[in-house]
Design a protein around this nucleic acid. Structure first.
Length: 883
RNA sequence: GCCCGGGUGGUGGAAUGGUAGACACGUUGGACUUAAAAUCCAAUGAUCAUUAUGAUCGUGGGGGUUCAAGUCCCCCCCCGGGUACCA
């Protein structure tokens, strides 16, 4: 009766594979459930125990939903483009496809060993030409779409009306006009360049200290021709779409912050002595009366013109210094603010007072208009600057009942909250907001500005255009040709996919050109008229393939179209999407953007792709450090009597929790866990560790705990001597049905840890009782199977069933068994629990009171006291207030 | 700084405002064994006292609401994640 997990697991894995047990059919008669994992990047290191956490969770739900009668789509694939395979190619000359396929094979082997119920016939790989053909096709759709502001909707470029004055200027002007509308465009853009890796880095690969995540080298800015996507056009749609989603609030907040919508006004200030206006953006037009200076960014186009000759030298010096500073230096908040006076004044439109124009690098060119009106009394940054340069601070918002009111009114303290306006009226201009509050002040001022025709309400977003090209080899080639006459054209659909050329050398050029520039034959093209052209040498970023993979799973082998619309309508949206929180913004925002464009073009049927999102927490590991905080590699740690010692120095060490890392030698490989304890134990422990969304440390002893449970369950249920005929013991029957209900509830609410615990509790009782009926054994096999599918199938089989239990019905709860006729009430006096008493459920309150107060145990607590209150909560507690 | 999470036994963690510590690890004692492993049984928040039993304290700290607070409200401390002069 030994639990031979290796034998059991390989047998059922073979069975599932041979019988294609988990092949999904497009059976429209059944309700569907689409449950998706974030597909992995198949790294050379293989799986670590963090991967199977989310995969097990989705697998449990998939198996459960199948038993509940759903048609479940549960696929897996590979996000396989990426830099590591390319760097390996640079070092060894091995084609990235070879490395990638090897890694995919290893990942697939590891994942299959966990017993996950994927439909492997739907496996996709972003580097497969059959797949990226459609990534290129989507790029074409983006290129050929413009965003109609009025309809708030993307529309085909063919539906764009060209203004007459543009048409009159000829073809070039028309193309330029269209180009400015396309969602994908080609332009100069600043990118991060790593001189050591000779490659461009994505923003997210640059650490906050300005170094390259991969090699630690400081990255530099480079100006290169790039593809960009106009995602800000969809800002409002992306914001609104968040409303109906069942997503973690934190992720929604992060996306909102990233989009960064702000409402305010643009205001034109007259510049003294120049026939020009300076336009600023502000969220606080109501504070115009407190504006005592203005600031423009050093890169502002008017910087030169505004500066008076006497100040020229000083200003130029400042601008140059600012240009040399890294972004990091410029945005370091701790640093003292710097700036320089241009010598020129603007006119404050509300009171006609002259205010000085400064240049300072705390104002960024890329946001708003690159110029601000500064209100030091009511903006902390402006306040700091004004203090530094002795610029007047005029308080115009009375904070009323605030402690520091006097200080604020005197301009010695900054006040950014609401209040009542003072000093905010001008007879000359007719604007008066004195006595109003912030909200009224803003509306009134904007109305006034619009009436004067010097400003208007404006919305700004923090989100920028998405830099969509990388100077790399191992990515999707753009289906683009740049012709010698300057025309840019896209390949016809029939010419897709555009494959990557074979290369001798994968090293990029020093100038920042992709390795593809070396592929002479591939690179140069000639059209039928003899016109010469050059293919785009940039490739798409890794996001491209992951932006839409969930759509391809629906119809992965369709050669004719991206997918069959009927299938798409059936399967979409994804009902549940589980993955790491590190994708809270970028991947999920980019995907949503593409999805909305495809929706506008009528290609997909849902407005949002992922209905419910859940993040699994990171799996950490125990690590050890000395009293000075130095980390000690795990292979140098000895455990004696619950304390930890350094094997070489003998020093006592402290146990801490840290990320798994090679240097700490605390990385756990699922292969090892499976070999020692089996896949079911791995799965069970991943779930038993704690709540799915929390970070938690891996502990080998915990695996032993669940392994123990599987052992006990097998030894008990696989032994026919323990299986009886006839009626089930009432206690066992009651607990069984409680367990069915608890496990189902917990699965649906993603509380897998407590579900496992409930199964353990039932198993403990069954073993204690020593006997269960065959029905009970069969029920247990079914409710265990989503968690430990191999053992589930084995027990099902031993219970005399021939076929897989994957599609068996989830057991019905017998509600009658769950009804109790009495309850053991805890009795408290003044909130302190004193004793317990068993009472029938259905007797009136008076009798309960009588029974409790007359109980001999109650005397002790009531002696010399009177009962002031008797609290009775049915099926919960009794609390008696005495005094 | 701002925005999210989180802080419960020796450990991982349970707990619709209603019996704090389910379940598991570890530890201790016992059974089995020549012995060990495995397995099984029992105990296990702390403190005090003890004949079973009992009492007091206890969910980061301080206040509050309530018959009743780990849970709700206010203030503070610590840890993790995100973000960073976005006007």
């Amino acid at each position: 009766m030994e639990y031979n997990f290796a034998k059991i697991e390989s047998r059922w894995q073979r069975y599932w594979e041979e019988n294609k047990t988990f092949k999904t059919f497009d059976d429209y008669s059944k309700p569907k459930y689409y449950i998706l994992d974030m597909f992995p990047y198949p790294s050379g290191a293989g799986l670590h125990v963090g991967h199977p956490e989310g995969y097990t969770a989705t697998d449990i739900i998939s198996r459960y939903k199948r038993m509940k009668g759903f048609n479940v789509l549960h696929p897996m694939g590979w996000d396989a483009f990426g830099l590591p395979a390319e760097q390996y190619a640079m070092q060894t000359g091995t084609h990235p496809a070879i490395t990638t396929n090897k890694n995919c094979d290893n990942f697939r082997r590891q994942i299959k060993a966990i017993g996950l119920s994927y439909d492997w016939d739907r496996e996709i790989n972003t580097t497969d030409a059959h797949y990226f053909k459609w990534t290129q096709w989507i790029f074409k759709q983006l290129y050929n779409t413009w965003f109609d502001e009025n309809q708030q909707k993307g529309r085909p470029i063919s539906e764009l009306t060209i203004p007459e004055e543009v048409q009159l200027q000829g073809l070039e002007a028309i193309n330029e006009f269209i180009g400015e509308k396309r969602l994908a465009y080609y332009d100069n853009a600043q990118v991060w360049w790593c001189n050591s890796c000779k490659t461009v880095c994505a923003n997210e690969e640059v650490l906050t200290d300005g170094s390259h995540e991969k090699c630690g080298n400081q990255v530099v800015r480079k100006n290169l021709k790039q593809w960009l996507l106009r995602i800000p056009h969809y800002a409002d749609r992306l914001l609104q779409g968040l409303e109906g989603l069942d997503w973690p609030a934190g992720v929604i907040d992060m996306q909102k912050n990233w989009i960064g919508k702000s409402t305010g006004a643009e205001i034109d200030f007259q510049i003294e002595g120049l026939n020009k206006d300076l336009r600023v953006y502000t969220t606080r037009p109501d504070t115009l009366f407190g504006a005592t200076y203005m600031v423009i960014a050093p890169e502002h186009e008017l910087a030169g013109e505004i500066t008076i000759p006497e100040k020229k030298e000083e200003v130029e010096k400042y601008i140059q210094a600012a240009a040399l500073k890294s972004d990091l230096d410029r945005t370091d908040l701790a640093k003292v603010k710097t700036g320089v006076f241009t010598g020129r004044y603007a006119v404050n439109p509300v009171n006609k007072l002259p205010i000085p124009i400064w240049i300072a690098d705390y104002v960024l060119l890329g946001y708003g208009t690159g110029a601000i009106m500064a209100v030091p009394a009511h903006d902390s940054r402006d306040f700091e600057f004004a203090k530094e340069f002795n610029i007047p601070i005029v308080c115009i918002l009375d904070p009323k009942d605030v402690e520091e009111r006097e200080e604020i009114l005197a301009g010695n303290k900054c006040w950014t909250e609401d209040g009542e306006y003072i000093n905010s009226a001008s007879e000359e201009t007719g604007l008066n907001i004195n006595g109003l509050n912030k909200e009224q002040g803003i509306t009134t001022t904007i109305e006034w500005l619009e009436a004067q025709n010097i400003g208007k309400a404006t919305v700004n977003y923090r989100m920028r255009d998405w830099l969509f090209s990388r100077q790399r080899y191992w990515g999707e080639p753009f289906p683009v040709i740049h012709w010698e006459d300057g025309e840019v054209s896209l390949l016809d659909d029939e010419e897709l996919p555009l494959l990557l050329p074979k290369l001798e050398k994968y090293t990029p050029g020093d100038s920042g050109e992709s390795p593809l520039a070396n592929a002479e034959e591939w690179l140069h093209v000639t059209d039928k008229n003899g016109r010469k052209g050059r293919r785009e040498t940039n490739t798409m970023p890794q996001w491209a393939g992951s932006c839409w993979y969930y759509l391809r799973y629906i119809d992965p082998n369709n050669e004719e179209r991206i997918f069959d619309p009927e299938k798409e309508q059936y399967w979409m949206p994804v009902d549940l999407y589980i993955g790491g929180a590190e994708h809270a913004v970028l991947h999920l925002l980019y995907s949503r953007f593409w999805h909305k464009v495809l929706f506008d073009l009528g290609i997909v049927s849902t407005n949002e792709p992922f209905q419910k999102l859940y993040n699994q927490g990171m799996i950490l590991a125990f690590a050890y450090e000395t009293s000075t905080g130095a980390k000690v590699s795990s292979d140098l740690v000895e455990d004696r009597d619950g304390k930890y010692y350094h094997t070489e120095t003998g020093e006592e060490l402290r146990q801490i929790v840290a990320k798994m890392s090679k240097s700490l030698k605390n990385v756990v490989n699922p292969d090892d866990v499976i070999e020692r304890y089996g896949a079911d134990a791995l799965r069970l422990y991943e779930m038993f560790m704690g709540p799915l969304d929390e970070r938690k440390p891996w502990a080998e002893n915990g695996v032993k705990g669940v392994f123990n449970f599987l052992n006990r369950a097998y030894r008990f249920f696989a032994d026919e001597n323990n299986i009886t005929e006839g009626e089930e013991d009432i206690e066992v029957a009651k607990l069984l049905h409680q367990t069915i209900r608890k496990v189902a509830y917990d699965i649906e609410n993603l509380k897998f840890n407590t579900a496992v615990s409930a199964l353990m509790v039932f198993n403990n009782l069954a073993i204690k009782k020593g006997k269960v009926t065959l029905d009970t054994a069969r029920t247990f096999a079914r409710i265990l199977s989503p968690f430990a599918p191999h053992l589930g199938e084995e027990l099902w089989h031993l219970c005399g069933k021939k076929n897989t239990l994957a599609y068996e019905q989830w057991p019905e709860v017998n509600v009658k068994l769950l009804q109790e006729d009495s309850h053991e009430y805890p009795v408290s006096f003044n909130g302190k629990l004193r004793f317990k008493i068993e009472l029938p459920i259905d007797i009136p309150r008076e009798e309960i009171e009588k029974a409790v107060l007359n109980d001999p145990k109650a005397n002790k607590w009531m002696e010399g006291k009177t009962v002031r209150k008797f609290i009775f909560v049915p099926k919960k507690i009794i609390n008696i207030v005495v005094g």
